[in-house]
């Protein structure tokens, strides 16, 4: 479904992604693992063309999307949930959702405001509040819900468990598992291995913008050296 080949991205002069290759199949939940600064966020931004890769190719459903503007990529059914959340804090929750709204797609789960409020009941209670007054967990829910309003086929979740209370993390894990049931394809980037293991089918490990591992969590268990080298303290 998503195919990344020989991707190279820079931030100014810093070489962040180094000849990155991987692919994602429909219906999969894949965890992008690695430490801070390993290139997880840049990978997601490069897919969305929020960072313009110097070279390489990203294709989605067989079409090259490397030179498309972000809004066209979003309209093809890629939903991006940024790490910094970037909710529109001057807008109410309902208005935030409205910004993300797109037409329904045949080959992707369809979301309505009602369905999303069912998924994230906390949001319903504060639907007319502005984004400013929300906790980290609520902001995270809102930014996911906002992206789901675009009825994406593939969801890019950048560090969804970061900086939120453990009880919300748990809720988040359940939510992602539910996405999987609905048939959504998901890429999540994570530093939290346990969280990733619960929700994802497959792990891709990045370090200094290079792919160091690509396989199931069982494979990863059997290779403790990799785990220790790239993930643990």
């Amino acid at each position: 479904m998503l195919e990344i080949s020989a991707l190279n991205s820079f931030y100014g002069k810093a070489h962040i992604l180094n000849d990155l290759d991987f692919s994602i199949n429909r219906g999969e939940v894949v965890a992008l693992l690695g430490r801070n600064g390993a290139g997880k966020t840049t990978t997601m931004k490069s897919i969305m063309q929020l960072v313009h890769p110097k070279s390489g190719r990203v294709s989605f459903d067989g079409a090259d999307i490397t030179s498309l503007p972000s809004h066209k990529i979003a309209r093809l059914g890629l939903g991006y949930v940024p790490e910094e959340r970037r909710i529109f804090s001057d807008l109410t929750i309902l208005e935030n959702l409205e910004v993300g709204r797109q037409k329904a797609r045949k080959d992707a789960p369809v979301w309505t405001v009602e369905a999303l409020f069912e998924l994230f009941p906390n949001l319903w209670e504060r639907r007319n509040n502005r984004g400013k007054a929300m906790s980290g967990g609520e902001q995270q829910m809102l930014t996911i819900a906002r992206t789901l309003m675009g009825n994406p086929k593939l969801l890019l979740l950048d560090e969804p468990s970061e900086g939120i209370a453990p009880v919300i993390v748990e809720q988040m894990a359940k939510t992602i598992l539910r996405f999987k049931e609905e048939g959504l394809t998901v890429i999540i980037s994570e530093q939290n291995l346990h969280f990733a293991r619960i929700v994802a089918d497959r792990a891709i490990i990045l370090e200094s913008g290079e792919k160091k591992f690509d396989g199931t969590f069982t494979d990863l268990e059997n290779q403790p050296d990799i785990r220790d080298a790239y993930l643990s303290v």
Binding site: S161, P166, V167, V169, E170, A173, Q191, N192, L193, H194, F195, R197, I198, L231, S232, V233
Partner: peptide, 21 residues
């Protein structure tokens, strides 16, 4: 620091989710 349990938890996740797992 390496052997500090709390640090392990922060870097390798944990909390309720870890318990659940």
């Amino acid at each position: 620091v390496r052997n500090n349990e709390k640090v392990q938890e922060v870097y390798l996740g944990g909390g309720t989710l870890y318990e659940q797992e």
